[in-house]
Simulated assay, not measured.
Amino acid sequence: MPQMAPMSWLMLFMFFSIMLLMINMLNYYLFNPKLNIKKMSKDFSLKSQNWKW
């Protein structure tokens, strides 16, 4: 069975590294979180506890 040339391994590594970077960048810039700050602040105020030591 013939071995792959080292140049092919380098090209494969570069290809998959670039793909990984592009997928991460697309995921970062296309993700649009919808946060309700008012709703979150109500939840935090309701769950607060007074600790008595």
Rank of each mutant, 00 (worst) to 15 (best):
Ser48Asn: 07
Ile37Ser: 04
Phe16Leu: 05
Ser17Lys: 02
Ile18Ser: 06
Leu35Asp: 09
Asp43Val: 13
Lys52Cys: 05
Leu12Trp: 09
Gln3Asp: 08
Asn32Arg: 15
Asn27Trp: 00
Leu12Tyr: 11
Lys38Ala: 14
Asn50Lys: 15
Leu20Asn: 02
Phe16Val: 11
Lys52Asp: 13
Leu35Tyr: 14
Trp53Gly: 11
Phe44Tyr: 08
Met7Ser: 13
Leu46Val: 10
Asn50Asp: 03
Lys39Phe: 12
Leu35Gly: 04
Leu26Lys: 01
Pro2Met: 05
Met1Val: 12
Met40His: 09
Pro6Val: 04
Ser8Met: 15
Trp51Asn: 09
Phe13Ile: 09
Ser45Asp: 10
Phe31Met: 07
Leu12Thr: 12
Lys42Asn: 07
Asn36Trp: 00
Met22Tyr: 03
Lys34Asn: 13
Leu20Pro: 01
Leu20His: 01
Trp51Ala: 10
Pro33Tyr: 02
Leu35Gln: 12
Ser45Ile: 10
Met7Glu: 15
Ser48Leu: 10
Met4Val: 10
Phe13Leu: 14
Gln49Phe: 08
Phe44Ser: 05
Met11Asp: 00
Leu20Thr: 06
Met25Glu: 04
Ser48Met: 13
Lys39Ile: 07
Asn32Gly: 03
Lys47Gly: 08
Pro6Ile: 04
Met25Ser: 12
Met22Arg: 01
Met40Val: 14
Met19Ala: 14
Ile37Pro: 03
Asp43Tyr: 11
Asn36Glu: 06
Trp51Pro: 07
Tyr28Gly: 06
Ser45Arg: 01
Met7Val: 15
Lys52Ile: 15
Tyr29Met: 01
Leu21Cys: 11
Leu46Tyr: 11
Leu30Cys: 08
Met22Phe: 08
Met22His: 05
Gln49Val: 15
Pro6Ser: 00
Asn24Arg: 01
Leu26Arg: 00
Asp43Met: 08
Tyr29Gln: 01
Lys52Phe: 11
Met40Ser: 10
Lys39Asp: 15
Leu26Trp: 04
Lys38Gly: 12
Lys38Tyr: 11
Leu21Ala: 08
Gln49Arg: 14
Ser45His: 01
Ser8Tyr: 02
Ala5Ser: 11
Lys39Ser: 15
Met19Lys: 01
Ser17Met: 09
Leu30Pro: 00
Pro2Ser: 06
Trp51His: 11
Asn24Asp: 01
Met19Pro: 00
Asn32Trp: 07
Pro6Asp: 00
Lys34Gly: 05
Ile23His: 04
Ser48Ile: 12
Met11Asn: 08
Ser8Asp: 06
Asn32Cys: 05
Phe15Ile: 05
Asn32Ala: 10
Met11Gln: 10
Gln49His: 10
Trp53Asp: 13
Pro33Trp: 00
Asn36Cys: 10
Met19Ile: 13
Trp53Met: 14
Met40Asp: 03
Tyr28Arg: 10
Ile18Tyr: 00
Phe13Lys: 07
Lys39Cys: 05
Leu10Gln: 14
Pro2Phe: 09
Leu10Ile: 15
Leu20Gln: 05
Lys39Pro: 03
Met7Lys: 13
Trp51Asp: 06
Lys39Trp: 02
Asn24Val: 07
Lys38Thr: 12
Met1His: 03
Ser41Gly: 02
Leu10Asn: 09
Phe13Val: 09
Met11Pro: 02
Met25Phe: 12
Asn32Val: 14
Leu20Ile: 06
Ile23Asn: 09
Ser17Glu: 04
Phe31Thr: 12
Tyr28Lys: 10
Tyr28Gln: 03
Met4Phe: 14
Lys47Phe: 09
Gln3Leu: 03
Asn50Thr: 14
